[in-house]
Amino acid sequence: MSDAAGDRNGFCYRHPDRQSFVLCQRCGRTICGECQTPAPVGVICPECMKEQRAQAPKTKPAVLTRMRSASGRGAPVVTYSLIGVTVAVFLLQLVPGLGVTNWLYFTPLAVSDIHLEPWRLITTVFVHSTALIFHVLLNMYTLWIFGQLLEGLLGRWRFLALYLIAGLGGSVGVVWLSDPNTSVVGASGAIFGLMGAFLVIQRRLGGQTTQLFVLLAINLVIGFVPGWNIAWQAHLGGLAVGALVGWIFVETRKRDQRGLQIGLLVGLTALLLVASLRYVYFPLLG
């Protein structure tokens, strides 16, 4: 009869001085309490656990997982993302010393023969007045309302294109209708573009538009109230361009017209970029 103390099968393979009668469920080796990791059935040793983790599928960050889950359920993730980015930028604007507003606001001279900072044509829709929190809250509330409607109707990529192109249109409106030294911030141009597109789509599809007309009229009139310092030029530019994008979507909604739709959107964007260069090619008009 062999001596139990000399039988290695009854001792932990990692700690030979520790007797145990528990086996790894994967490799069958003896493991002590310190080396045991609970498994769905029994326990496994450290080496098997390491191998199991290496073979497990890589998981993505929780934020991406939740966004993908929401996307699969048809949630307006682009709308939520635009609101999230805008709110995050607004909070950064409040941090002293960062100068976020100075980097992102728009002025017609940002695309002139004096300065060349074309990113401001778009980045201005993500910054708001820090002196009036009502500014960002009202814009984001309106984006939340129309974003849910239009993103579900158009699809995510078309909706994002509409928002950005309308925002670009708002900046071009400021270039041609404002003093060159004007400075503007806010998503109003892009949001008026959403309303313009929704109006065109609703009318084309036979929907009710009376309330939307009233809402648009009220907001346009507010823009002209003396002393309110509202960039009505961005409102008009965004509204006109948004309505045009909406018309493009309606008239090219068939599957075999997708190429035409993309071409028209690219052409419109290029035209707006050229129009934004007023003070580069037509400085005398300023």
Score class of each variant (00 low, 15 high):
Leu236His: 00
Gln211Glu: 15
Phe159Ala: 07
Asn219His: 15
Ala187Val: 06
Val214Trp: 12
Gly206Thr: 05
Gly186Trp: 11
Leu160Val: 07
Gly223Ala: 01
Gly170Asp: 05
Leu215Asp: 00
Gly238Thr: 11
Ser178Ile: 01
Val214Met: 09
Pro226Phe: 15
Leu220Thr: 14
Phe224Cys: 04
Leu216Ala: 07
Ala187His: 09
Val185Glu: 14
Leu160Ser: 11
Val241Tyr: 12
Leu168Thr: 03
Val185Gly: 04
Val185Ala: 11
Pro226Cys: 12
Phe192Trp: 11
Thr210Asn: 14
Gly186Tyr: 03
Leu220Arg: 07
Thr210Met: 13
Ala187Ser: 13
Gly189Ile: 00
Gly169Trp: 12
Leu177Tyr: 00
Leu194Ala: 04
Ala234Thr: 07
Phe192Asn: 06
Ser171Gly: 07
Ile191Trp: 00
Gly189Tyr: 05
Ser188Glu: 13
Ala190Val: 08
Ile191Lys: 05
Gly170Asn: 09
Val174Ser: 09
Leu162Arg: 01
Asp179Phe: 09
Gly237Met: 07
Pro180Tyr: 02
Gly189Arg: 02
Phe192Gly: 03
Met195Gln: 07
Ala161Tyr: 10
Gly173Trp: 10
Thr210Tyr: 12
Ala240Glu: 09
Val225Gln: 06
Ala190Phe: 12
Val172Asn: 03
Gln208Lys: 08
Gln211Thr: 14
Pro226Trp: 14
Ser188Pro: 01
Arg156Val: 09
Leu239Gln: 10
Ala243Asp: 01
Arg158Tyr: 03
Gly173Tyr: 11
Gly237Ile: 06
Tyr163Cys: 06
Tyr163Gln: 07
Ser183Phe: 11
Arg203Asn: 13
Gly193His: 06
Ser178Gly: 05
Gly238Asp: 12
Ala240Ile: 14
Ile201Gln: 02
His235Gln: 14
Arg203Asp: 12
Thr210Ser: 15
Ala197Arg: 02
Gly206Asp: 06
Ala197Cys: 04
Leu177Asp: 03
Trp157Ser: 09
Ile230Arg: 12
Leu194Ile: 08
Gly173Asp: 03
Gly167Gln: 06
Ser183Glu: 14
Ala234Ile: 07
